[in-house]
Design a protein around this nucleic acid. Structure first.
Length: 306
RNA sequence: GCCCAGGUAGCUCAGUCGGUAGAGCAGGGGACUGAAAAUCCCCGUGUCAGCAGUUCAAUUCUGUUCCUGGGCA
């Protein structure tokens, strides 16, 4: 199995710098695993690696989509896989780095096979959810896939829609598909390093980073995107930072409040990431300062003594 | 020094006509299989400032001490 190194952890903890150090040390290249850094023109708010950093180590899966392009974890897994395979042929180490847990999981284990998301079905179901509420979708799901209905809360519209979509387009229950798949067949042998630190310290860093983003011109970046015609309703524009600046531009809140909410929502996001990664098996947790230890671990791993 | 208003959850406060208390914000835990920076679920015990008194019972009433605001000197 191909070996890769994966760096994960919450937002703002220093994954970018850490991954660059490791990649340089082992002559590797970085594969982003971030569902927002994939978009062009969204630089400040996504804390995308800057030009100087990219010059140090080649980056992939970053900065290659228009903000209104459709994208999903399945496409990510396929494309990132192709990049890793190409690097592998040259004997170059792939360092996957990012905070989108689902992308990392999809890359390493794949997703269950099924028809890809169909925009039509999706929006039709979304309309129905709007009209009749989540409960009606839940009722329908209970009929065709009671197991899934049991696991999905009636308010969790996204998951209800997906489950119904899978049933309607394949005739099979998502619960069965998931059980069969079970994330049980890794496609890569990954040394996964999770970055962590004291929660309070992280939160301080996050607050400070938001202030820095504001100084760097986050508001201008978002206003510029709107001017270019990218609607605030876009998925990308509803991400952290972008939606907050949008709220200010809409005059829903004043700037202080927008920044306050931006900090809070970033903190909450970091918390959710901890929840996700905590239960991922096999992660070795490190403080971002432990670069030497990480290097030793990678060396061991590559030497096959893992 | 005197007068007034306060001291209740991390913060801002509500409340108990005496039967040990609850909102908002913040925070915590969890879920997650092709939208995932999204989406969703759950979580409030805190010497009710300290001490003493009245009472079957005090965070609630009384006294006193301390602290914080404001006013007068």
């Amino acid at each position: 199995m191909k070996k890769i190194v994966t760096i994960c952890g919450p937002t703002g903890i220093g994954k970018t710098g850490f991954a660059i150090k490791l990649a340089k040390r082992f002559d590797g290249q970085i594969i982003g695993a971030d569902s927002m850094q994939i978009y062009k023109y969204m630089d400040i708010g996504t804390a995308k690696p800057d030009a100087r950093e990219i010059r140090q180590v080649p980056h992939h899966m970053i900065d290659f989509l228009e903000p209104d392009d459709e994208y999903d974890a399945g496409q990510y897994a396929r494309q990132a896989s192709a990049v890793i395979d190409a690097l592998d042929e040259k004997g170059t180490l792939a360092v996957v780095a990012g905070g989108t847990g689902l992308y990392i999981r999809a890359l390493i284990f794949g997703l269950f096979r099924s028809a890809p998301v169909c925009g039509q079905t999706l929006s039709r179901l979304a309309d129905q959810a709007q009209e009749k509420g989540g409960q009606s979708l839940h009722d329908r799901l209970r009929e065709c896939d009671p197991k899934a209905a049991k696991r999905i809360h009636p308010n969790d519209i996204f998951r209800l829609i997906r489950a119904l979509e899978v049933f309607e387009s394949t005739g099979r229950a998502i619960s069965t598909e998931q059980e069969t798949h079970g994330f049980s067949n890794p496609k890569y042998d990954s040394l996964t390093l999770g970055l962590t630190m004291d929660r309070e310290v992280l939160y301080d860093r996050i607050n400070q980073r938001v202030d820095i983003m504001m100084n760097q011109g986050l508001l201008k970046e978002v206003a510029g995107l709107v001017e270019k015609g990218y609607s605030l309703g876009l998925k990308s524009m509803q991400s952290i930072g972008y939606r907050h600046m949008g709220m200010f531009l809409n005059q829903t809140v004043d700037l202080d409040e927008a920044v306050r909410l931006l900090k809070r929502d970033t903190r909450r996001y970091a918390k959710r990431q901890f929840t996700w990664f905590r239960k991922e098996p096999g992660i070795i947790w490190l403080n971002p300062s432990e670069v030497q230890r990480a290097e030793a671990l990678v060396k061991q791993f590559l030497d096959g003594r893992h």
